[in-house]
Amino acid sequence: MSEKKTKRRDFLFTATTAVGAVGAAAVVWPMVDQMNPDASVKALASTEVDVSSLTPGNTLTVLWRGKPVFIRRRTKEEIDEARSVKMDELIHPEKDEDRAKNPEWLVMLGVCTHLGCVPLNDKGDYNGWFCPCHGSHYDTSGRIRKGPAPLNMEVPKYEFVNANTIKIG
């Protein structure tokens, strides 16, 4: 057997396999991607909330992208408590100044970063939130302080459209 012949076969074999693999991947990808959020889900990306009725010390919970969003109008004490915490005491260090640009208003996803339950208001060891599922405690800035959750509750993109209306998303 001459070496040239085997090489020709090898080339055909490799080329066929390669083209076949590319073709298979091209078919598999649409099957995989169809499971990602579709256009109608993505279209519901933002929501506007009227917060004029909210008094200090109260929380409004609204639904955004199927998830609850906490809008908390914080009291003076809560703000002071959140801002006086030293960074090295935190599991996930984030300044309250970065989480709440306007200190009176805290807007964040009401979703525990452990396994996605909705934490309860005004509960827990840090006067913020407490997740009943697996016992994570959050402070008045929604930062994780104790328990299995790895991260602070997420602050979504939001803005004040006017003095009374917040647009989330």
Binding site: M35, N36, P37, D38, V41, R65, G66, L115, C117
Partner: peptide
């Protein structure tokens, strides 16, 4: 919600996988 969120523990791609499993940003009709 809790069980699908188990996948979010995977570093880097976890969140993407959970969104893919849900077909949205939370457990919903899809």
């Amino acid at each position: 919600t809790v069980i699908t969120n188990l996948f979010s523990a995977i570093p880097l791609v976890g969140e993407g996988i959970v969104t893919w499993l849900w077909g949205g940003y939370s457990v919903d009709n899809p």
